[in-house]
Every structure is written in structure tokens, then in C-alpha cells.
Nucleic acid binder design. Sequence first.
RNA 1: GCGAGUGUCGCCAAGCGGUUAAGGCCCCGGAUUGUGGUUCCGGUAUUCGUGGGUUCGAUCCCCAUCACUCGCCCCA
Length: 410
Amino acid sequence: MITAQKGTKDIYGEEINKWHFVENAMRKIFEKANYQELRTPIFEATELFARGVGDSTDIVNKEMYTFEQKGRSLTLRPENTAGVVRAYIEHGMHRLSPPVKFYYTGPMFRYERPQAGRQRQFHQLGVEVFGIDAPSADAEVIATAITFLNEIGLKDLELEINSLGCEKCRSNFREKLKAAILPRLDKFCDDCKMRYEKNPLRMLDCKNLECQSYLAEESIQNVIKSEFICTECQEHFEKLKSYLDELNIKYNVNKLLVRGLDYYNRTVFEIKSNSLGSQNAVCGGGRYDSLVETLGGIKTPAVGWAMGMERLMALISDFKVSRLDAYIISQSTKETLKLAQILRQKGYKTEFDMQGKNFSKGFEKALKSGAKYAIILGEDEISQNKITIKNLDTKEQQTITLEELFNKIE
RNA sequence: GCGAGUGUCGCCAAGCGGUUAAGGCCCCGGAUUGUGGUUCCGGUAUUCGUGGGUUCGAUCCCCAUCACUCGCCCCA
């Protein structure tokens, strides 16, 4: 038997209804907030991710599905911000009046060991806003995320925010942090030693307990807690917080929050759930003011986030499924096919007994299908050009013409 | 890349060394060819993830392997 590959899943049955529910909510909320959908290809030049996501990240170093095709190195997208930025640049969208706002959804690919909330092919939904420097864009993007999560009925989520500062204050901070850590460096884990060289900020969210304990030391904490970010960045962050307060959006400032991708600056945030197991981040995002330039465009500020669809699905319990309106019971396949088509054209979700054995079986199937009405199209009805409609909940039934039926409903 | 657990029908499972591998759900057929999910009867695993080994005998013990699940890491 050929089975689905490790870390991939078929989505069907009950599950697909959830996806439709979430996708419908997504369209509704993002369209209302004037985001436009952007669909980018599933594979891109490998270089896009190497430069965009950052070559110090695990994603680029060990998790990409890369293949050679006619001398080109291609990669299945591990995330979609780089692709959206590429499209933004390629189509000269800097000429559009800002903000330029996109949302997207689709499969992403990362070669990792699967576990709860983590697959090799998984789906993200995200938004990106280009061209706005002001913290209003950060607030808008976070507020839209919250609105969407509320729409699909998710509660008990925690929003964490932080500011990484801009390039200037960041490099300042980086040097101070390195200086504070240096005397203890040999105690940290191997990963942290590597991070120390490539991106020391990422040492802050190391999950290793020993590393955490060294980070907790006063000399290092003093640096972490110090307001290293410049006045401008600080103002930016303060404004964002005041907007969130105004919108009544609760948040915790987590100074240890560092997003794993290299492109973030200033605002970073994460939305977590306590009921998800160890992969508990539902949404992650932040500002990336230099990515457009890094990828060859003109310098354009931007902010966005991505959510993990599968993680959302794991949190959704109740949602409405559309019920079958009519189930046709008949032994005349021709008449049944015709009637089914008419009912479907009129907008009724309709199924029929394709085996057409006997009325008993037909009713049994009608009931199991969960339909509201059984429509009986027997010899008697056909000869009178009528139908018998039975409400399967109340058991009332009557024999009428189709015209009478539609008049009654309308 | 590292660590742990689990593999018996489509699903949930019992059996844990001894002749035909329980049971339940689902599905299918019949009792019941113009009216109901109930009930009753019947049907569905030459085989216990795969390959070796131990044994007179292995679903059961051992080894390997594969798959899945969970955790670390990382992230959404």
C-alpha cells in the first residue's frame, strides 16, 4: 500500500468542514479589513529563502525541501513572507498608494520531525502590510489577527509582544549582550555558542534550562532589562501599546520574545494557546523594515504575521455544518435525477437514493443522511405529477405539486 | 539530529506460549418490495506492521527493520 508521506495528511470528512469554516471566516474578516488575497507559487528560487528568511536560521539550514531542476536550485516554500515580498518587488507595488495589504493561505513545507502541531506539509494563513512606518500598521495587523481569532471562536489566547529595536539600537544591544555573556559563554549549550556568533539575540529564547539559568544572572538580566532601544523605537513601541490598550486588546510584554527569522526588527509578537501541547504558538509575526531592500526592492517598511492552520483546527471544537435539505426516495432513476437537479438549482442541498431498492431502505438512508426532508417520488406521485414531502423531524407529510412546494417555501 | 511509547479488520479493541484470533461500532444482505434510526437473523481478519531468531508450537518471548504517536530542538 502506498501511504501519505511522513508529516503529510489527507484532509477530509468532519475535518474539511472545519477548514471551510476557517477559510470562510478568513475571507470575511480580511476582505472587510481591505486586505487582498495574494497567491504566490509553492516553489521559488532557493536564494529567495536563503536571503529572505536568513541563513542563520534553522529553517534555511536544515529544514528546506530543495531540489535541482535544469541547473536551477528550487525550494518548496517553508514560509510565505519572502514570496510575498518577492511578488511585491517584482510587480513594482511600491508605486501603489500605501498601505499595500495582502493576505494569503496555502501549504508550506519544512523537513522536521513531525509531532503534535507540527507537520512537514502544513498550512499557514498570513497577512503582510507594506509601506507604513507608523505603529498604526502594527496595531492594525495585530487587531485583525485578534478579530479573526474571535470570529472563529477561539478564546483563552495570550498575546505577547516585544520590541527588538531598529538596526542601530539592535547592534548596540547585541554588543552589550555579548559582553555580558562572554564570561559565561563556555557554560551555554552548543546551539547557544553558535547563536552567540551568528545571532546572539536568539540565545534569549533558548529552551535549555541551564542556559535559562545563566541568562537569569544579574549581570545579564541588567542588560536584558535595560531600555536598550533608542528613543524613536521606544516611542514606536509605546504608541503600539497605547493603541492596543485603546482597542482593549490584552498583552504581555515579553522581553525574551525573539522571533526565529532574521528579518524582524522593532515589533515582534506571538499569540499562544495553553491547550495545544508543546507547539503552542498559534500566530507569530512582527515588523520587517529592511526585508524589501534586502531582496532588491527599494526600502519599504512592512509588518505581518502568519498562523498555523492545523493548530487553529486543533483548537476549534464547535462550528456549524450545513445540513442536507432534501433526500429523494424513488425507484425511478430518471425522475430522481431530474428532480435532484431542479432542487439543487433552486439552492437546496440535495441527495438521493442511488440504489433505489425499496421505500424502507430509502427512508433508512434518508434518516442516516440527516436530511430535513424526504421527498418521495413513487409511481403514484409520478403518475399524478406530484411529490410527497415528509419532514423527517416532525413526521408530517403531504403530497403536492412542485409548484406548490416552491410557492410555499418562497 | 537526539530521546520515549505504540503497532491485532475501515474504527475501537480482547487474547500475552498451545488446536477454528473474542466482542463492540460502521458497512452489507435478509425478516420488511409505499414509510423510519429500534429489534432479530446472517455476512465481512487463512491472520496479528515487516523480516529473521528462540521453541515441538508463536499475536504473545528475543533481535532487526518500517510506520505512527509524543517529547527535545525549532517554529506557525
